[in-house]
Design a protein around this nucleic acid. Sequence first.
DNA 1: TTGGAAAGTCAACAACGCTGTCCTAAAATG
DNA 2: CATTTTAGGACAGCGTTGTTGACTTTCCAA
Lengths: 169, 169
Amino acid sequence: MASGLPGQDGGEGLLFLTDEQVRKGIEAMFFAYRAFTADPDRILEGMDFGRAHHRAIHFIHRSPATTVSNLLMILGVTKQSLNRVLRSLIDNGLVEARVGTRDKRERHLHLTEKGLALERSLSDAQRARMRSAYRAAGPAAVQGFRQVLEAMMDPELRRQFQTLKEGGV
Amino acid sequence: MASGLPGQDGGEGLLFLTDEQVRKGIEAMFFAYRAFTADPDRILEGMDFGRAHHRAIHFIHRSPATTVSNLLMILGVTKQSLNRVLRSLIDNGLVEARVGTRDKRERHLHLTEKGLALERSLSDAQRARMRSAYRAAGPAAVQGFRQVLEAMMDPELRRQFQTLKEGGV
DNA sequence: TTGGAAAGTCAACAACGCTGTCCTAAAATG
DNA sequence: CATTTTAGGACAGCGTTGTTGACTTTCCAA
């Protein structure tokens, strides 16, 4: 019955909240996220790294000298999960962990030249896809995209995201 | 340098494609996806099921009598991966696999009462989050959200998504 | 100075992807 | 009717990435 009016949702103040519309959004998230991770996954397959390594590399790059604890909060995983990933990144010479000067318990994380090179290759691929999607959809759509994504986050998560957003680079 | 003009991107035809803007989109995807899967994950933890079971249940619900092969294509996983999941869903009485009448090689998948109950509980939670995000962001944002997500998909994936979209329910 | 909290490491386990091989039954095709 | 293809299932084994729990080392405050 919803398909009786198959056009745009524009101008419909009520229809856009039907279960059908919402379900389509859910499925769009599912498929889009698969596309979103596809390029980095492709680059990493064959190396000894995976998606978790990509995430660590990304956030170390964007917040150099970050600590393990800080990374832990951002990524939302447990210590051991991150530790395994960091270990292999360090052992393979992509990440350097410098003991803190003020607090010697802390390790400050940095990408090496090699790490930076991989970061660039991964983020180039992912950015290219995102940029092309942005270009195809247009500026207004991009703003809506970002608004909905932020609204989906729990307050705590959104706070983290926004802190990151401002403090970044 | 991009942060020299920190305001809205509205009216900016060029700035919205800076690496900074694109990176924020990437991080928003990361955080939002975590929120997106959080509620079902919470419901499923403790049961013998996980995210993979949720996905199978979702697509069996929205396309009843679908075959294993069809589900395989939609989910983009291997036979064995799906089989493990389907097996436990069938063994626990959530899914029924009916031998096809026209083609007896096929198994047509259906949710049982128990399966429908779990599906409802999972999708209620996920839909509630999505609906609340939609409401907070407004109709225009929703349209943009969907446009960008679709633009991110590979053509093949997008074709699948759109077929699903129209044929659904 | 001692005892708790915080940062990080390590061991072992679970979920869920993957590959590869082998198998049956049914359909399609020559 | 014989052969090939297709749909599905079973089993073995592996890799990544999540989990919990126990363990140092370091810092700080009672």
